[in-house]
Amino acid sequence: MKSSTKPETRQRPRRSGSDMPFLVTLSVIAGTYVLLIVMLIVADITYLGVAGSKTAESGIAGWPIIGAMVSAFRSPEIRNAIELTMISCTITAILSVFVAVPVGYLLARYRFPGRNLIDAILDIPIILPPLVVGLSLLILFQFLPEHVRRNVVYEKPAVVLAQFMVACAFAVRTMRATFDQIDERREQVALTLGCSKKQAFMMVILPEAWPGVLTAGTLAWARALGEFGPLLIFAGATRNKTEVLSTTVFLELSIGDLSAAVTVSLIMVMAAIAVVITARTWGSRSINL
């Protein structure tokens, strides 16, 4: 707008202050945190580089990280741990989505007595300290029949169950947010067009929720990868049996092999990055958790 039309009546214009201090403050805070995250990973890699060049026994010259990785992959214990981690995380992710889709849909679409209570209960695994989740699982199984207990506790199924307890709660949150953002009107139109509720869900709502389903799955997978507390208590940390990568880090640390612990950590970092990229590529970026 031109302000020169009536210069004689013009008051001294009010100048708004500069936006720079605000933007700089935001950038500094954001930048510090991002830098901290990047430094964590860089420190791991650098540490391996230094430790690798000191020992200089394993690996390719100039690439001590790759040497460390190769020797980690050569270890049968770590190979087993990688295998169990991949399988258990994948089962956990699939189970979590399988549960989270109906729960999220019910909470987003229906008003029923006790809904708020159920909503609060679903947050418990997120809020509880992980060790308490593990301990509570252990206690719960004390009340179950002996043959169930023997086949689950300190066995491989315990790994999946411990991961699932927490990961599923995150998947439920994601699916709830996904269904909340899908306009109910489209579902209602489908009903008037001749659909049953099930048909409307399967043909209209679920395809729209698909990016959310992928996000929920990858989030559950990533949570399961990082799970440690409940696992340690409920599944134990037995080599070649219930050892997953997070347990490996703990076991290697406890025997003083810092190098191996860092190497396994980097394997987990790579897996996590792969999952984040997958979620970003195919998943939804517009879900407000």
Partner: peptide, 12 residues
Amino acid sequence: GYVPQDGALFKT
């Protein structure tokens, strides 16, 4: 036949 306010077309 029902036409809601914003059309509510199926996105996928």
